[in-house]
Design a protein around this nucleic acid. Structure first.
Lengths: 118, 118
DNA sequence: AGATCATTTCAAGAAACATTGAAATGATCT
DNA sequence: AGATCATTTCAATGTTTCTTGAAATGATCT
């Protein structure tokens, strides 16, 4: 992950609502959540939410797919891990052993077996 | 660490120059670096740099102390670790064992024994 | 085809951000 | 005291960000 991408990811998360959205999607796991459900749970206007989803998506932190009339957003765990990796990489000059690599696993999928989670 | 603080820290790091400044200070270790040296190494105007230092400081990511006519800025490792902690905390619902806690140790101080590094 | 539901697009406006140049501090040296 | 060095403060400016409301898509149902 290169610096501009890191800046983009940090900027995407550096906003109250987007951080909440991302956290919710992380908790939801790789199957994701329809936009409307996110809007309802976080009490956000749907157009505002689209704006924020877009920022997260451009930063590579979420993906979208369509399901019927719903758009389903899901956290991109790899991107999250790459970000954590970059942040800890700067960290441990000289004392690597004290610096455990951070990583983020999706929680177990609740519904049917998901379509190729990784 | 509460959500608003996390947002503040992320916002502070979500800027090309500030990320570079912070990374440099992390590498410099707990003794920190005088503002002028940061300005020179990153080729930033001193007043611009003051602006960015201020943002990092308000976010709790760096501290300042005066030494003669220099101002010495140093990374606040605890804050960094708190941030990493928050980000990984959201992460591992259900599979805690897969999710190593991230942490960031300062590199060994290069000059004389530092004044109570923690 | 027409109605309805979920979401996105567009345009407008207020607020926050980053950079610049000029002037002000504050500490050190002669 | 006066000169100089390191850094900060201030005001101005252009850019980006977030939010809103209204209108447009796109998919589903009758």
């Amino acid at each position: 992950m290169k610096t501009p991408d890191v800046v983009a990811a940090l900027a995407a998360l550096a906003q109250e609502h987007r951080l909440a959205v991302f956290r919710l999607l992380v908790q939801a796991g790789p199957d994701g959540l329809p936009a409307g459900q996110v809007a309802e749970r976080l009490d956000l206007a749907p157009n505002t939410l689209t704006f924020h989803f877009d920022r997260l998506r451009l930063a590579g932190l979420v993906t979208v797919r369509r399901d019927g009339r719903s758009m389903i957003y899901a956290a991109q765990f790899e991107a999250m891990n790459a970000l954590l990796g970059f942040l800890t990489e700067n960290c441990c000059q000289g004392e690597q052993e004290k610096c455990a690599p951070a990583s983020c696993q999706p929680s177990k999928s609740k519904s049917s077996r998901s379509k190729v989670p990784a």
